[in-house]
Nucleic acid binder design. Structure first.
Lengths: 128, 128
DNA sequence: GTGGTTGCAAAGGCTTTGCAGGCAC
DNA sequence: GTGCCTGCAAAGCCTTTGCAACCAC
């Protein structure tokens, strides 16, 4: 088992993801972390994000159509993805136990993802 | 409204995706279609897949960790994604109406995706 | 005939990797 | 001191795009 070191870079990446409400991608985390650690590299941000996902400290959101997004919230909640502006919105609803509905034997399920897509309220405005 | 032309290439791409049980990515569709149309290009495969998704003839599966996969089944069904071998497996279960549970106003929802990930039966074998 | 479509090649965006120096433990 | 971690640069992978020729309608 590899020991994970708590470097300043990794702490800053974790803090940035937790602080953000926008489900940032690597580039956004990079910009944010750079304010405190101007010399951090994008590669380190990618490596830190990967490590944090592996440790279960943050969650990965794929399927938003662009770069991978990250989520500091660890509870199981669905997302809405706006196909127009790319926004990822947390949906605070209580989901039924979908995992329990699976009858196919042999699968070891470690995570469940529920995603809705469409157009968000802002993008539905006629002036957009 | 743009008229969509039924070229041999596009028909072959659609047929390949429908025929496959493995939720192929663009490269696999390319290999498959090439048997009948040896001169088809990968770019055409990408453009055809995009057009077919836009028309609603096939579905896109993101979040498998690698390249985008495609699904010839149009009914709403969840997928299981094996993190070890990358297999995408159809789950034939009846999902509750998740869309109806969303209380946040203003969202125009056009699609719902439910994905489970973990390790499939084959990859759970001790000799793997 | 017209305009969407194709094949080719090149470019593009996002992410990963090799390496030498640095730092947490 | 040891071995993971970092920054830099380069490479990698997947996907998109410009262009001239082509073909479905």
């Amino acid at each position: 088992m590899t020991i994970v070191r708590l470097t300043r870079q990794r702490q800053a990446v974790l803090a940035a993801v937790r602080r953000s409400q926008e489900h940032p991608d690597a580039a956004h985390v990079f910009e944010e972390v750079r304010r405190d650690l101007p010399s951090i590299s994008l590669a380190t941000v990618y490596r830190s994000l990967e490590a944090l996902v592996r440790e279960g400290q943050i969650a990965k959101i794929e399927g938003a159509g662009g770069p991978t997004r990250f989520d500091g919230r660890l509870d199981d909640h669905p997302h809405f993805i706006c196909q127009h502006c790319g926004a990822v919105i947390d949906l605070d609803i209580e989901l039924p136990d979908l995992k329990a509905m699976i009858t196919l034997p042999g699968l070891r399920i470690t995570s469940t993802q529920v995603q809705f897509s469409g157009v968000c309220g802002d993008c539905s405005q006629p002036n957009n």
